[in-house]
Amino acid sequence: MTPLLQVEGVSKHYGAHLGCGDVTFTLWPGEVMGIVGESGSGKSTLLNCMAGHLAPDAGRVVFDTRMHGPRDTVTMTEAERRWLARTDWAFVHQNPRDGLRMNVSAGGNVGERLMAVGARHYGDIRAQAQDWLGRVEIDAGRMDERPRAFSGGMQQRLQIARNLVTGPRLVFMDEPTGGLDVSVQARLLDLLRGLVRKLGLSAVIVTHDLAVVRLLADRVMVMKDGRVVEQGLTDQVLDDPQHAYTQLLVSSVLQV
């Protein structure tokens, strides 16, 4: 089997300040990788380097493309990268407003992504959009409403539908449950887990919430000051942390 994504020695500086340094890992098809660490640890920088939103200073991000096999996405042309972002990748932002078009209806938000990859038949697009709204548990009757009329949890589910409708193989998520209250979080986690399993998706999830990582991720990477201090099986890293910083993180979680 070919790895879906190979990240090799990726570094990014902001001036003299290190964003993330020398990160290397391999993601296999169907695997979910969690990246944890406190604010400023470099996890979002790393995610953005992988998703092509930021150009790393050094390193390679090799993605197994459908057409041409493994290709370094750092050195490919902007147009190729954009095409991958529309077809093979999805990016779920922490704030749904960053990933949705707030002036377009819910159905339009989902349909737009289909049109971006060439769908033209209005009836088909609408039917697919409706199917996806159903899968993320948004009532079909609200298809023509704009997302600003939705609650935060619904907006986040709509963002997920918009991202997954084109059948991506790799989903990047930046704090997907960040701004949501606890009961909505649980519902979203359940939804994400089901989708990942049914569609065989691979995902990279950035979060500071260890409970989210435990429920969703097969493997986890712990970052501090731009460096990966520990990585491995999720339950091993959380139950038997080896690095001082991971031990501190795990022991700092409040028990309910």
């Binding site: 099986l233 339950d235 091993q236 959380l238 139950d239 038997d240």
Partner: peptide, 9 residues
């Protein structure tokens, strides 16, 4: 047991 399951190293 945990070492066999793999959540302890």
């Amino acid at each position: 047991m945990r070492m066999i399951w793999g959540n302890y190293r």
